[in-house]
Write a protein that binds this DNA or RNA. Structure first.
Length: 665
RNA sequence: GCUCCCGUAGCUCAGCUGGAUAGAGCGUUCGCCUCCUAAGUGAAAGGCCGCAGAUUCGAAUUCUGCCGGGAGCACCA
């Protein structure tokens, strides 16, 4: 029996006693963790609730402590429960039988539930969404790390997950870089390809070149009206396809996606499918969605008013005088579809509601053979797996897109009331901004006005941002320096891979410790730190825990387990005086709870905080107890078991955050 | 103007569907390596939880109003 099962059993018992003794039905019995181990392992504030309900029913005011006292004995019947105390104003505090609980945890350890992958429902997480016209910056990495960690969290909670990175390969951003190549660099496709080859020969990357070119185009637009005038024309050509400009744009976007996928792979972030906007257009996804909407009568054609000539989706305005104020235009008066319209069609496809599919071809194979597929207009690969048709779709998109996302969600739900709004989840998060100091450190001149601000938004257009690869390189260099200092005996390959694991851990944890709707004001010192609340701290705890087992004699772990199972009374007595060891053991049992809370709140930071807390608790334990030299055999067994539970739990929690545990560090 | 988010220690942030003495990291000061890795660890100092009201046994948490900061409200993409 694990913690959550035990918790549920006790909840039911509380519910039943409340019903029998007081004729009160409590739908959801709240359970909480007492603030200190001394106060118990689980607390039910149920007496307060009962007092309230009794007062409502009879007008009598009861004492919560007395009520709690009447519930106490029923819970004590459970064999996992050592005793129950009434504490504070009327808390019902449950103390577990420590030896039994430890035994159950050891047994349950490593026992993975057999998951029936055939019948598992599939969910989709779409993240990253970097425009394929430049290198990814740290803000994009926040998106991808949030998305990727959430994927891992969903998988840990038993879901099958499909990961998509939507490629806007026909938008203005790609068109702008195409304009840069064609009109500023005066290059044709062959020359671009040659440049690309030259760059990689020099160890430079195409996405970095595009980063600078994109900035240059943006700057030139400010003074060169002629160039700016090319935009509409180029964009149109790119959207249309089958022309030399579109071929150049396709080369640009494909190469940038390759670079971005490589960058993300360094962070341990992978994808299953890259659906591209060009296919949404050319395979007429919109037309199909449009027909469906017309048929179902959820959109209407406006013949007069300010939206005359447009197809709109009616929305209730939050308030206000004009009832059409919030209507969302999906088709413009010139007949073209808006971004929101395309998004609704794509969302319909993700949920299996469109009745059309992409064709697929192989895009890339990771080192271990795992494939990324990409959508294609032409006949696809017959061996491609099935994509789309997910039960729930999580879109990881920054909070500024909340309104359009709301429109997509409500729009799809309006077309398919059966599916409902719950199927579309906007996993929204705040941006990563730069402190004025960080922007200056990057070599940007900051206006006096901006200097007054607490943060400056990053801008791909201005080229203002910390590039993902640059930051990771810097972290790896710093980590390598530390590894050299500590473990000069390791081979250079081992040192490098350790430094890489530490660097990734540092950055992922840094991005995950903030809750989603907190603006991260990027600060180099903080992001580059390996001390305090960092990924490195968590990794270090796990590494130290593992090193105990390298030195433990063979069979040491098994012997410890035997001792625990064979001598429950001695173990219980010993543990009853060891609150600190005991609290570490109970903390390890709460990982599934942290994961399900993260899912419910779509908030990976909850798991990150849990992981840090566990690492901290282990460090305290490690500091206060000498495991290998402990002479009391019962205590030694418990110390070994606790350390083992911790390293397993910590490793698993970190893996769910996308952070590896190095061999040594 | 309307909508959403934020305001908690010097700084950066946690604080779950209301609960026990409001926490962490950084920074500051003073300690701890004969001992499983000091990327560690102990202690001290540091708080009208933006302000005012309401709800109740109980509010940092819920509601209302206000103040301050940010973002979003296009036939752009």
């Amino acid at each position: 029996m694990n913690l959550s099962e035990l918790q549920n059993v006790l909840r039911e018992q509380v519910k039943e006693v409340a019903k029998n003794n007081f004729q009160i039905e409590i739908e959801a019995v709240a359970a909480e963790v007492p603030p200190k181990t001394e106060l118990g392992d689980l607390a039910f504030p149920v007496a307060f609730e009962l007092v309230k309900r009794i007062k409502q029913a009879t007008g009598e005011k009861q004492n919560p402590r007395e009520i709690a006292g009447q519930l106490k004995s029923a819970l004590e019947e459970n064999e996992m429960v050592e005793r129950v105390e009434v504490a504070g104003a009327g808390y019902l505090n449950v103390f577990f039988n420590r030896a039994k609980f430890l035994g159950e945890n050891i047994k349950g350890r490593g026992a993975r539930r057999n998951i029936d992958s055939e019948n598992m429902q599939k969910v989709c997480v779409e993240h990253t969404s970097v425009n394929p016209n430049k290198a990814a910056h740290i803000g994009h990495v926040r998106n991808a790390v949030l998305g990727d960690s959430f994927v891992r969290i969903l998988r840990a909670s038993g879901k099958k997950v499909e990961i998509q990175y939507y490629i806007d390969n026909t938008g203005v951003q790609v068109a702008d870089v195409a304009i840069g190549f064609i009109y500023l660099e005066k290059m044709n496709l062959d020359e671009i390809i040659a440049l690309d080859a030259r760059l990689s020969a020099e160890g430079k990357s195409f996405d970095y070149f595009c980063w600078d070119l994109y900035t240059k185009v943006g700057r030139t637009y400010e003074t060169d009206e002629d160039l700016k005038a090319k935009r509409a024309e180029v964009l149109h050509l790119v959207e249309e396809g089958n022309n030399p400009t579109a071929v150049i744009a396709d080369y640009i976007s494909t190469r940038n996606v390759q670079c971005i996928v490589d960058t993300m792979e360094r962070f341990g972030i992978r994808y299953d499918l890259l659906p591209r906007e060009s296919e949404i257009l050319h395979l007429h996804f919109w037309q199909k969605a449009f027909d469906e909407m017309k048929q179902r009568g959820v959109i209407r054609f406006e013949s007069e008013g300010k939206n005359a000539g447009c197809w709109v989706m009616p929305f209730e305005a939050h308030s206000g005088n004009d009832e059409h104020e919030a209507d969302k235009i999906l088709v413009r008066s010139n007949g073209t579809v808006t971004y929101t319209g395309k998004d609704i069609a794509y969302q319909m496809w993700k949920l299996g509601l469109l009745g059309l599919d992409f064709n697929y071809k192989l895009f890339h194979k990771y080192d271990d053979g795992k494939a990324i597929w990409v959508s294609t207009e032409k006949s696809g690969d017959k061996n491609a797996p099935e994509f789309g048709a997910s039960e729930t779709v999580y879109n990881v998109i920054d909070t500024r897109q909340s309104y359009p996302q709301e429109v997509v969600k409500k729009g799809v739900a309006a077309i398919f009331p059966d599916m409902g709004e719950a199927a579309s989840v906007h996993l929204s998060y705040e941006m990563v901004a730069l402190s004025p100091a960080a922007a200056e450190e990057l070599g940007f001149r900051i206006s006096d006005e901006d200097k007054q601000k607490s943060f400056i938004e990053m801008s791909g257009r201005k080229g203002l941002g910390v590039k993902a690869d640059d930051l990771l390189n810097r972290l790896e260099e710093n980590a390598l320096e530390e590894v050299e200092k500590r473990h000069s005996d390791l081979s250079s390959e081992e040192k490098k891979s350790t430094a890489h694991q530490i660097a990734v851990g540092a950055l992922r944890y840094f991005l995950l410790k903030f809750t989603k709707n907190t603006v991260i004001v990027f600060d180099f010192k903080e992001a580059l730190s390996f001390e305090g609340e960092t990924g490195c701290f968590c990794q270090y705890s796990a590494v130290r825990a593992n090193s105990i087992f390298r030195k433990l004699e063979e069979n040491g772990l098994e012997k410890a387990f035997e001792t625990i199972f064979d001598s429950p009374s001695e173990i219980s007595e010993m543990l009853s005086n060891e609150n600190e060891i005991w609290s570490l053991i109970t903390l390890t049992s709460r990982l599934p709870e942290a994961i399900s809370q993260s899912v419910a709140a779509t908030e990976p930071a909850i798991l990150a905080k849990y992981t840090f807390g566990l690492a901290k608790a282990f460090n305290l334990f490690y500091h206060n107890h000498k495991i290998l030299t402990e002479e009391n055999r019962f205590k030694r067994a418990v110390l070994i078991a606790a350390a083992d539970l911790t390293r397993k739990t910590l490793t698993s929690a970190l893996e769910t955050l996308g952070i590896e545990v190095p061999e040594r560090m």
